[in-house]
Amino acid sequence: MSMKKIYGLYNDDTVLTHAAKAVVEKGVHVSDVYSPFPIHGIENVIGMKWTRLAICAFIYGLTGLVIALSGMWWFMGIDWPMIIGGKPNFAFYQNVPAFIPIAFEFTVLCAAHGMAITYFIRNWTFPGSAARNPDPRTTDAHFAMEIDPHFNSKFSKQEIVNMLAATAPVEIFEKNLGEEKVALKKGAVSTAKATKKTTVSKAVAIPPKKAKIVGKKDDLTKIEGIGPKIKSILHDNGILSFEDLASSTPAKVKKILAAQGKRYQMHDPKTWPKQAKLAADGKWDALKKLQDKLDGGK
């Protein structure tokens, strides 16, 4: 899938918290936040549930207590009863003070280790696991906010990026797990500084091709007939914005689709450039009317 997750990178926890509040208020679903230390209250901002690990610990502890007490009852009272120091083991309740220390230790042992193991499993972290933080700086002094386009279908990527840009990030990029990240907006602060020093600030600039990808990527699914899959196919083939689509011919689009295999051959892109033109010009009402007339782009 090329629906990459979008990240806003910040250099302060307070700024990130405010940023998260700001975008959540606008209805964006923030899927996660990556930080070098726990940010208190962020779970409430992004609507994340508190963990129930403590309940697990209680259950493990109780299990340990039952095992320890029933074990000692059986070892000392049933399997080999003995009178030690004048204290008859076969009367469990009379000898219980001597069993309390081990019962307590075993309760703690089970609760602590059971919870620790559950913790590692729930986090899915084991020795040698691959790190899944989007940027190595998030374990140092940076804070990243993750927005998954899947859960934000009502916004175009551009809209999300714009919203993020208004919250003072140091960087906006998109990335899939295990892939290289693609900058959507590079280091605001550092670019500003670089510009001041010298006009040749292109050292930090983004490669031209990606810059193009970055600059004008429109949500092509607004075109009747284009779903997320086709949208990504078109994006991959350089048709990024409405303008791009408007200036291409139905034949060219058809060829792109045909190259993707049989599944896409049945699509008819005849009206897509026309629709895209309306979208590019912002004539949304006209587009809607046109779409009402069409049936699936045909």
């Binding site: 230390f37 992004i46 899915w124 084991f126 040698g128 790190a131």
Partner: peptide
């Protein structure tokens, strides 16, 4: 290897804090 693939996402930190607190209590 030592860092167990620690990611530092919000949920992991929530769990981290809860585990620290319960372990402290124990």
């Amino acid at each position: 290897i030592l860092s167990f693939g620690w990611t530092g996402n919000a949920k992991a930190w929530i769990r981290f804090e809860e585990v620290s607190l319960v372990l402290a209590g124990l």
